[in-house]
Design a protein around this nucleic acid. Structure first.
Length: 269
DNA sequence: ATGGTAGTTCAACTA
């Protein structure tokens, strides 16, 4: 009986600036695979040596010019890049996937934030977000059936009432509008994924993975949202240790923190 | 109703 694989998703908001935060987290939590979003780093500038020194030398990365977006997967075990559906009409660096030696696929997504105005006519970024959400379910339905598949990332949508600090006050705020939450849940279900957080934790319990930088005291005000997700398809779910699901809010604090906390899950391999 | 912070790249954009 080998020990289960520990998988992490974390919007790191610049991997070059926060490589030390990642190294501290890896030393404390010993993940086997870490999926990062908002690396804000072109591939040639990715701090590969820092990840090698952390014991996560195997990389699948996709960055872009301009200091925005970017996704990366770093692994203790060898990984190969896996096929992903075409979800981003702007062709930004938002989707990447890796296949582990066991055949388990890990898909890592940074979904567009969508700007401030929740109107696809007035706000092109919101239109792009809705288009991405519409493509998500059909895209994953086209991938090869039978593979064990985990999908993680910053999906920039808080789907449940208790995924935000105030359902009522956030209904017209981008990330919690019905336009987004209905699309996210429709896409998730149609592609056969389960939302592992809500298998692990009752719907009645508040769950947050992100707290704004703009609060005077993020922990005291605790106006969070659950934007970061771990999904498992039916084939993978039998290997998922649901009770191992954790949000690590301590990493929202400390030295130059990301505005997102890391989220982890153990999976038998 | 507004403005509050952070990162990248270098005045403005994204979040």
């Amino acid at each position: 009986m080998t020990r289960p694989l520990k998988i992490v998703t974390w919007n790191i908001n610049s991997v070059r600036l926060r490589a030390p935060n990642v190294a501290d987290f890896v030393a404390a939590e010993a993940p086997d695979v870490i999926c990062l979003q908002e690396t804000k780093c072109q591939d040639a500038e990715f701090p590969a040596k820092a990840f090698k020194d952390m014991g996560l030398p195997h990389l699948v990365i996709r960055g872009q010019r301009g200091g925005h977006a970017g996704v990366a997967i770093a692994s203790r075990l060898p990984i190969e890049e896996a096929e992903v559906p075409d979800l981003c009409r702007e062709n930004q660096a938002r989707v990447i996937a890796a296949r582990l030696p066991s055949g388990l696929e890990i898909h890592n997504i940074y979904l567009p934030a969508g700007g401030d105005i929740p109107d696809p006519v007035a706000n092109e970024k919101f239109a792009h977000k809705l288009d991405f959400l519409d493509k998500l379910g059909p895209g994953y339905k086209t991938l090869k059936k039978g593979a064990k598949r985990i999908l993680v990332g910053d999906l920039n949508v808080a789907p449940h009432e208790n995924d935000v600090w105030s359902h009522k006050q956030l209904l017209r705020i981008v990330s919690h509008t019905p336009q987004e939450t209905e699309r996210l849940e429709d896409s998730r279900k149609s592609a056969g994924f389960s939302d592992v957080a809500r298998l692990a934790v009752s719907d009645e319990q508040k769950l947050y993975t992100w707290w704004s930088y703009r609060a005077a005291d993020w922990a005291a005000s605790n106006r969070g949202r659950r934007l970061d997700h771990i999904w498992a398809n039916k084939a993978a779910l039998e290997d998922v240790k649901v009770d191992s699901y954790r949000i690590h809010p301590g990493w929202r604090g400390g030295w130059k923190p990301s505005d997102h906390a890391p989220v982890s899950l153990k999976i038998k391999v």
